[in-house]
Amino acid sequence: MTLRMAWVVMGIMSVVSLGIAVMFALQGFWPILPFAGLELAALGVALWVSLKRNRYREVIVFDGNRVRIECGMTGEGARLSVDWARSSTRVLLEQGIHRNDPTALSLNNGSRRLTLGRCLTDEDREQLAARLRELILAGWRVGPLERAADAAPDGN
């Protein structure tokens, strides 16, 4: 659903719901109006949250001895972008503190840490962690000179 379509949905809902509430308010039965307003606000928030989650993307690109990660909304460009050396990047998959807590997947490079895959299931996160480890292993074969060059800050 596009943002425009979401507005159309909100419009169709609002016209009917607010129309009914205003009609009764004009007759003196105003307490219906705040309930209609609250409900439409809840619908609007739900649509906004869902649209936002739908548009969120994390893109991880392995290129030679580099790993580039971009996070952001589709159509808005990357809000966060890092470019790290493959060889000095580690994958960490941590269990939640409580048994029912979700796992947390992060990429670590020196003191820098980037959490990924919050939108995935635990199973998906495990698969992604395994795949990332596979791809990063290849980076461990590069020499110390390249590692030193990669230690420079990347602005993120």
Partner: peptide
């Protein structure tokens, strides 16, 4: 992996 919504509490 392309998922349309929040799953972070799924197992």
């Amino acid at each position: 992996h392309d998922h349309a919504h929040d799953h972070d509490d799924h197992h």
